[in-house]
Design a protein around this nucleic acid. Structure first.
Length: 197
DNA sequence: GTTTGGATTACT
DNA sequence: GTAATCCAAACA
């Protein structure tokens, strides 16, 4: 069941949490989302909207469920989903996936890395799934999109943590990860890396 | 026109 | 620990 745009018409923190355990499909490849981060369009100094007028323009011009993809550190594409709720707008950054289908193709794109290392970070995930700036502005929810999200029957524990790699608003607990999952980019402090002995 | 910093990764 | 590498924004 494909996820529709109303899923993204909420606040970014709820959307980020709700996306954990869902499936993302990009042509022949798919994976389960195991790590996300929320960014708010207002009051969040770590969000692009805080410093970049172009990001604020993107929020007003595009609809909920659109892809916001940008190049970071000059080298890596990072994929976000635009969130537009009645109270609050923002983005959800996709940070890690558990690969499902098309693993051979992902490994080819990722230069033969191991399964756990294919999508264990926001830059790695876009390489493995074949996403780049050319899908910036495209919708994840359009019926014509080659990239979309799907419902799953995943009953999964979700952990909350602080966001990674930012300097401003670094104390907000807006990172979400799937519990007991080894495909995340970084475990929450104190969580065992493999089933406890 | 030039400078600066960043939501990262891979390799040593 | 740090090099790789580019865009938008902020100066001048």
């Amino acid at each position: 069941m494909r996820i529709k745009s109303d899923f993204f018409q909420t606040d970014p923190v709820s959307a980020a949490r709700n996306l954990i355990g869902k499936r993302i499909v990009c042509q022949k490849c798919s994976g389960i989302i195991v790590e996300t981060e929320a960014y708010a369009a207002k009051g969040d100094e770590a969000a692009h909207t805080f410093t970049r007028p172009s990001a604020r323009e993107f929020v007003s011009k595009y609809s909920a469920g659109s892809a916001y993809v940008y190049l970071n550190y000059g080298m890596y594409w990072l994929a976000n989903v635009l969130i537009k709720g009645p109270k609050c707008n923002g983005f959800v950054l996709l940070r890690a996936l558990e690969p499902e289908n098309g693993i051979h193709l992902m490994q080819k794109r990722r230069n033969g890395k191991k399964l756990k290392d294919l999508c264990s970070g926001p830059g790695k995930l876009t390489i493995a799934m074949g996403m780049s700036g050319k899908i910036h502005g495209q919708s994840f929810t359009s019926s014509q999109s080659r990239f979309w999200f799907e419902e799953t029957h995943n009953k999964t524990g979700i952990l909350t943590d602080t966001r990674i790699g930012i300097t401003r608003s670094a104390d907000l607990p807006w990172r979400f990860l799937k519990k007991n999952n080894d495909f995340v980019s970084k475990k929450k402090a104190g969580e065992p890396s493999s089933p406890a002995p």
